[in-house]
């Protein structure tokens, strides 16, 4: 390790300890366990700053926070899965003795044997770890993939396909009753007829040209090419709009973190 790295690390450690002491002194008399609480808040702040330091470049603090995060989150997810699914849902249906051991209520039922099948399939999946019998795990995968492929086939055919088509049946011509507020104050959100027709035409042409853009088996030349070109324009304008829309939301996330650092850790009254 380089000398400068060591100096920086030592400096950060000293600062961290100092911050802990100062925080503990600030909390003394206000809360029980103030030493522990001061440590926890300081540690959270340390991790927050370690992650933010990534913006400058990769560094040992970020690496530490990253590896800690990976370990803790994997264990968290595993514990939650174990208690909620295996102990919470599976064991009460499989075995009375195990239910007693885990202090959950045994649920008797005529068809509880059916829960042995996924257990067997799950164990087959673990065969992956075996060098010679790893291929058996494909049976479990095939079950999952087959079931969900069938499910998704129908789901998307209905929601993304049939429903979207029928939603595009919009009136392009309406009995003319004037332009509404369009010319008087350029109100695009007004429900004037011109605006409505403009919107409907845009939706119709946008959807059509968008679909044409996604044609793979025909060269995009001539009339077809122009329609496809218009399609990609509409897509790009849309992507821009949704990009712009997201910016504000993302910045508010940062504000939340900065508030933590300044108020909870450093104790500023903001």
């Amino acid at each position: 390790m380089k000398k400068t790295t060591l100096i920086i690390m030592a400096g950060v450690t000293v600062l961290f300890l100092l911050s802990w002491i100062i925080k503990a002194l600030a909390l003394e008399g206000m809360q029980e366990d103030y030493i522990k609480k001061a440590f926890l808040v300081t540690f959270s702040a340390f991790l927050t700053l370690s992650i933010l330091s990534f913006l400058y470049r990769d560094n040992p603090f970020y690496k530490f926070a990253e590896h800690l995060f990976v370990g803790v989150s994997a264990a968290f997810w595993m514990s939650m899965g174990f208690w909620s699914t295996i102990v919470g849902n599976l064991i009460p249906r499989l075995s009375q003795n195990l239910s007693v051991f885990f202090k959950v209520h045994y649920i008797p039922g005529d068809f509880n044997f059916r829960f042995y099948i996924p257990v067997i399939l799950g164990l087959l999946l673990l065969m992956r770890l075996s060098r010679n019998y790893g291929w058996i795990s494909r049976w479990s995968l095939a079950f999952i993939v087959g079931t969900t492929a069938g499910l998704n086939f129908i789901r998307y055919l209905r929601s993304d396909f049939i429903k979207q088509i029928s939603a595009t049946f919009v009136p392009l011509l309406v009995d003319w009753q004037g332009t509404g507020h369009f010319f008087s104050n350029l109100d695009l959100s007004a429900s004037g007829q011109l605006v409505m027709m403009l919107a409907n035409w845009t939706i119709f042409l946008g959807v059509m040209s968008g679909i044409i853009y996604f044609f793979f088996s025909k060269e995009h030349t001539g009339m077809f090419g122009r329609a496809s070109r218009f399609g990609i324009w509409v897509l790009m304008i849309t992507f821009g709009a949704s990009f712009g829309y997201t910016v504000m939301g993302r910045i508010s996330l940062l504000v939340g973190r900065i508030t933590f650092l300044f108020r909870d850790w450093l104790g500023f009254n903001i």
Binding site: I51, F69, S73, A74, F76, W77
Partner: peptide, 9 residues
């Protein structure tokens, strides 16, 4: 890991 941002990190 099955945690969105730990994975990203």
């Amino acid at each position: 890991t099955t945690n969105q941002f730990a994975y990203v990190a």
